[in-house]
Nucleic acid binder design. Structure first.
Lengths: 358, 358
DNA sequence: CTGAAAGCGCTTACAG
DNA sequence: CTGAAAGCGCTTACAG
């Protein structure tokens, strides 16, 4: 029976009309070769004005757009950047994500998102998956990779930029503020304000930011002979920050001034102090955060905080990214962006006390 | 000179060692065909345990992972979902993004992010770009597409799910709460509380959420013979919400109760009322928001708000997405997720007034 | 400037 | 179960 061939094979005899419009369809309509179509859509490739016009017209008629995935197979460039991120509930990161995405978009890149838990073992699986998408680069925000995986990416030629995290052992590029210096300035500020006893609420102890902020804070206190008399761990999580605040409230010797490792926790803690424990900030206890996210400036909080300028950090991250994408196997760089202590009412003892003393 | 051929052509004579490890490399090491390697990495394809073991061992040795982009060329599935989003500074959306990303990740999909301004003309360009990436579907959060583009995506077989926005003319699937009903319940709540004059701060007037919330609010008031006596536009932007609040404060006949089109604006406005105008909430003016984002529940605000359950909405969006990806040209669906009025202190007149009256 | 052709890394009927 | 081969949609030397 000659009819047996009627059902076409799915793979080998795909009819032109089925689904996607390709450069061949455009070529046919424009009366040029497929190569010509490709050239019209390639920056810097040679095509006469006449050809270009015909092709563009045909493409418009058909609604053709080049397939970036097919292109990437040939060029080795996907124009996809993988972003690994863990803490979207810390408002610093949505801000970073927005700015990073917009800037990359302007350069023709787009972000592929991978959410991860903060613990290191999980991150590696996530990154392995990213590699399947042939990303041109990876940004890890607030998470750390194993050094084995970092090596693997390096040998695969996929640059990695760490955002707001730094790792000595793996030689990865990074953008951070100087967290040690930030912690130190906070200590000096509180001492200058006249406070004499100090507490610290830690973030996740695997994080370089947590480590450096605490070390800087302790160092800054030690310079003037002070120490941390209360410490609890909030792990950068709101529920745990809440618990840490309760520990603080119930502690025998509550410190007079408290440094909390980031704003997200500091705001929660201020609320507990004021509304659950009936304490006044700063009159009963001063509070300082880190990140200077927008709620820190809200009149209900007026939280003193060390700013991490997201826009500058993002600019630097993109510079690093482009630098590594364009130059293979270049040495990594650690970029430190200057931060700044934003002094607000939550730590302002002098404003009230000095006037009393005068 | 025979030396002239020394530099290899970049394209045609790529040495095996240069860069990526392919299925051919694995095949060679494992002593099987390239097809066999492919099958081992394809769910449901037939491969003997022996072959599978050899291939997996070789892949591990070489650090091989299949190239998803190449795969997608054949299968027509990229496992990429495009997300268009405009308001990451409204904390509702980072929450949505996180949940959406995590859920999709579990099903092997990943989100490619496109930031857009809220105005419609811009969105179309963004979506055109998304299509180049051969996404399997598009989620538009808080933005609206032109109906031409919606048609184009439909004919290209790319399903679109609108998140927190609804559009009658273009027949797109959508997930929203019932914003009209939400506005109406808020009106009834405020009336029940005993308030008698009402203000409204609008979001961006091109947004269906804004339109429906306002219409519902006005309808709910009208049922009891009330009307809106003050109205200003905040456009869902913090700076403009701030200005709207100042207008309110300086208005001749300030309303006794205020509905603000979303929490992000409502929090800003509460701060202006309390800290710039010295007004008490709810004693001088009641405030209600929409979204029930986490800051609404913070003790400093205690903002009454209509909840949009992000997790349920995301679950529904993913159901719609998968339904449309798996079934071509299926009719669109409008899913309404039940919301709930969360009554907090910011609108609680009775708590104080009743006790006074008794 | 232009077309024919090879090939990017993969999947999948086909025929053993 | 397995290998040889075609082809997804594109870019890019090559030779006119």
């Amino acid at each position: 029976m000659p009819k047996q061939q009627e059902t076409p094979h799915r793979l080998h005899t795909k009819p032109t009309s089925s689904g996607r419009i390709t450069s061949y369809d455009v070529a046919r309509l424009a009366g040029v070769s497929q190569s010509a179509v490709s050239r019209v859509f390639t920056d810097g490739a040679s095509a006469s004005a006449k050809t270009s016009a015909k092709v563009k017209q045909a493409a418009k008629t058909l609604g053709y757009r080049p397939n970036r995935l097919a292109r990437s197979l040939l060029t080795g460039r996907s124009y996809i950047v993988g972003l690994v991120v863990a803490y979207l509930d810390n408002y610093f990161y949505p801000d970073v994500l927005e700015k990073l995405s917009k800037s990359l978009q302007q350069q023709g890149y787009h972000l592929l998102i991978f959410m991860a838990a903060q613990t290191a073992d999980n991150i590696d699986n996530v990154v392995e998956e990213i590699l399947e998408y042939q990303v041109d680069a990876i940004v890890t925000a607030s998470v750390a990779l194993s050094s084995e995986l970092a090596d693997k990416c390096q040998s695969a030629g996929i640059p990695i930029v760490q955002f707001n995290r730094i790792q000595e052992q793996s030689h990865l590029s990074s953008v951070t503020t100087d967290n040690f210096q930030g912690g130190r300035e906070i200590a000096h500020h509180l001492i200058t304000q006249g406070y004499q006893s100090f507490g610290y609420i830690a973030g996740w102890e695997g994080a370089s930011t947590q480590r450096d902020r605490e070390a800087g804070f302790r160092s800054g206190l030690a310079e003037y002979g002070f120490d941390v008399s209360f410490r609890a761990v909030g792990n950068f999580r709101t529920e745990q920050a809440h618990e840490a605040a309760l520990q603080l409230v119930n502690s025998k010797n509550r410190p007079r001034a408290l440094f909390v490792a980031n704003d997200a926790m500091a705001l929660i803690i201020m609320d507990v102090l004021r509304h659950k424990a009936g304490l006044a900030v700063p009159d009963d206890i001063a509070v300082v955060g880190y990140d200077d996210t927008s709620p820190a400036a809200w009149p209900s909080y007026e939280l003193t905080s060390y700013s991490q300028p997201a826009d500058v950090m993002v600019d630097k991250a993109i510079e690093l990214l482009m630098y590594h994408i364009q130059n293979d196997q270049t040495p990594s760089r650690q970029v430190f962006v200057p931060g700044e202590l934003k002094i607000r009412n939550s730590s302002n003892m002098l404003a009230s006390k000095i006037s009393e003393r005068e």
